[in-house]
Structures are given as structure tokens and as C-alpha cells.
Design a binder for these strands. Structure first.
Lengths: 189, 189
DNA sequence: CCGCTCATGTAACAGGTTACATGATTTA
DNA sequence: TAAATCATGTAACCTGTTACATGAGCGG
């Protein structure tokens, strides 16, 4: 089971409703996992049944009522046990890579269009993560924060997110260059 | 549908049996996708029914008979259509990141153990991909091959794989350093 | 008044994982 | 002789995605 631990980890920063969790997981602010709202609502229900999270109803006048969840002691123990076991290796599964794998047999213009799109998405995420990092460390330098901050988990995962998206963007740029150079060579024949 | 296009792209390099495909997808040599043998066998059956791949029986004496598959014209058209459409953005889903997200609340020793494991796996993949790149470009330099080679798709995806794993390894190393420094600071109090 | 945000869910379906099943040959 | 490789599949199960459903308030 995978999502359950991601939810528990996300709830460590404080109480959240299903809706707020969904926001975090959807926008990709929670850069350590991704999930759809529907998954989160059902996962929260399950976690509550098992006693790993507890929710309290918050009655609102102008908005629909909501339930704020927090991690219980049993939930923390579950996270501890999860960390004690080896993480299964992650594998890349990316439509764009499949398209590039077929590069020599499909339309180059289309492929360059895909790579350009992806590079833009990556840049947008870099910017988003960058401002998130800035907010997390407040007015400290990165080294200071990592040494003395009291909640560095989210910062560390966000660093990973930034590195991933930078690599992503740079690889797209390089690949576009290669494809364009080859097109010019081909045109020259 | 996702796996189908990965299979088509993998078969562009020549005829393969289900077993051979499984090898490629399993070891991670096919760094653009990952799939289990069982998925591949059923996907090949489906693709054949739809006429996107065609198989021919190869009778063997010392080994069980096998079926070698190749992509048909319809299959190529399918790949072309797939590339014409936007690739959906990829999301990270990584147990290790969930564990690091919870860093401040779980056992540091356990976490460092996980990060060390992952760094080793990443290094192993870097080595594997490195030798694969070497084999693909034969005795050409990378630039020469990318300019004049006739099948650069697999090379480009492999470059991405290397970059990903390097980033992976380096982030693990950095994170371990941070955690160890904090442990020392804490011990000094 | 139209569309967005808040707020939570059900149901159907597609995709992926794990376990089981078989059986010959080659390598250590 | 035990384990790994070659070779293919079925079935049950767990995860994840998409579509549908509801309904109030707020901003342009």
C-alpha cells in the first residue's frame, strides 16, 4: 500500500481537510507524491477506520462543513514501520520518453512540439518549487535552515523536485537541439 | 492506454519475443518504461488481435517455441498518432520521498539506511546505462553519433535515464550529509 | 448570470502487481 | 543435483483514473 503513507506524511505538517489535501497533492506542491481528490477522500475514510488518522468536524456557516484530519500515535507508528522497510525502487513511466524512443520513425515537428511543451511545464514547476523553498526557509539561507530548521522533510523533498524538473527541462532542450541539427543536415542532402 | 505504445516503440529495433521484451522492460534497460512480464504477454496478445503487431512462430528444438513480434504499418500509424498528441505530464511517486518527507518524525538511522540503499541502486543503473550508451554509439563520439547515427531514439532516452539516476544519487548523498550533520548538532546539546 | 472555489462523495473502468502453473535445458 | 534460463500463460487482487452527482457562496 502506497498512498496511505503519503497521506500520513502530508498530514504531519498540521490538520488538513480532504479538500486541502487534494489541493496539495494535485498542484504538485506535494512533490513527493501525486494523487487525485477521489483517491484522497476514500483513503482518509479508510485511514480513519483503522485509527491511523482522526478527524474532527468543523462547522462553517458560509461554506459546507469540513473534516480536519490529523495523524494519531498509531499513524506515527505506521510511518515509522514504513521507514524501517526498504523503499521499492522507482521506475520511470513517461509518455514523452516513449515518443522520443520512437524518434527515428515519427514526425520530428510533432516530437519537438511535445518536448517544448514539457520544457515549459518543467520550468513552471521549477518556479513554483523555488518560491515554495523560499517560503519554507523564510529568511534563512539554505544551509542555515537545513542545519537548524525544525521541519526539513518537506524542504528536502522539494529540493529533489527542483532537481528533477531542471534535469527534465535541460534534457528536453538538448534533445530539441539534436533533432533540429539533424533536420538541417537532412535538408542539406 | 499507456503500455501499448511503449511496446510498439520497443519493437522498432527489431523482432522480439515476449520473453525478450520482458527482459528489456524488467532490468530497466528499457529506461523509458517499466513493465512486468505478465503485462507484456497480455499486451502482445491484444496488439496482435488489433493488427498493430504481427508475430511469427519460431520452432526451436532445445528450447520451447517462441513467437517473434514486429510492428505493422498500422502499428506505426498508431505510434505516429500517439506522438501527435500531448504527452501527459509525469508525476513522481516514490516511497523514498514519502519517507524523507516524514524525516523529522521518524528514525534517522533507518532513513539514512534507505538513502544509502537508493544511492547504490542509482549508481548501478548509471553504470548499466553508461555501458549501454557506449554500445549504442559504438566507436563514435556522442556528438558524432547524435548527428549521424540512424537510430538515436534509444540513445536519447538512455541519456535521460543516466541524468535521472545521477540526480537521484546526488540528492541521496546530500540528504544523508544533512541528516548526519543535524544528528551531530543534536548530540552536542 | 456565468464560472470558480469550497466540500464530499459513489460507481465504473482501466491499468498494474502478485501468485500460481508448467516444463525442458543449461550452468555451477 | 540445485538453481538459473528459456518460454508462455491464467486468475485474483490491488491501485489509480474518469465520469457523474450535489449544492452553496463569491467575484467579475
Amino acid at each position: 500500500m502506497a498512498l496511505r503513507h503519503a497521506v500520513l506524511a502530508a498530514l504531519l505538517d498540521g490538520e488538513l481537510s480532504g479538500y486541502q489535501l487534494a489541493k496539495a497533492f494535485d498542484v504538485g506542491v506535494a512533490n513527493f507524491w501525486y494523487a487525485q481528490p477521489q483517491q484522497l477522500y476514500s483513503e482518509l475514510t479508510r485511514l480513519e477506520k483503522e485509527g491511523l488518522v482522526a478527524g474532527r468536524e468543523v462547522v462553517q456557516k458560509t461554506r459546507p462543513n469540513k473534516r480536519l484530519f490529523h495523524v494519531t500515535d498509531a499513524g506515527l507508528a505506521e510511518l515509522e514501520a514504513f521507514t524501517a522497510a526498504s523503499a521499492k525502487p522507482t521506475f520511470i513511466r513517461d509518455d514523452l520518453l516513449v515518443q522520443v524512443q520512437a524518434a527515428d520513425r515519427v514526425d520530428t515537428d510533432a516530437l519537438i512540439a511535445r518536448l517544448t511543451e514539457r520544457a515549459h511545464v518543467a520550468q513552471a514547476k521549477i518556479d513554483l518549487f523555488g518560491s515554495l523553498l523560499h517560503r519554507l526557509r523564510d529568511n534563512l539561507t539554505e544551509d542555515e535552515f537545513l542545519r537548524h530548521g525544525d521541519r526539513i522533510g518537506p524542504y528536502l523533498t522539494c529540493l529533489r523536485g527542483v532537481a528533477f524538473e531542471q534535469e527534465n527541462r535541460d534534457w528536453c532542450a538538448r534533445t530539441i537541439t539534436v533533432l533540429e541539427e539533424r533536420r538541417q543536415l537532412h535538408a542539406g542532402l
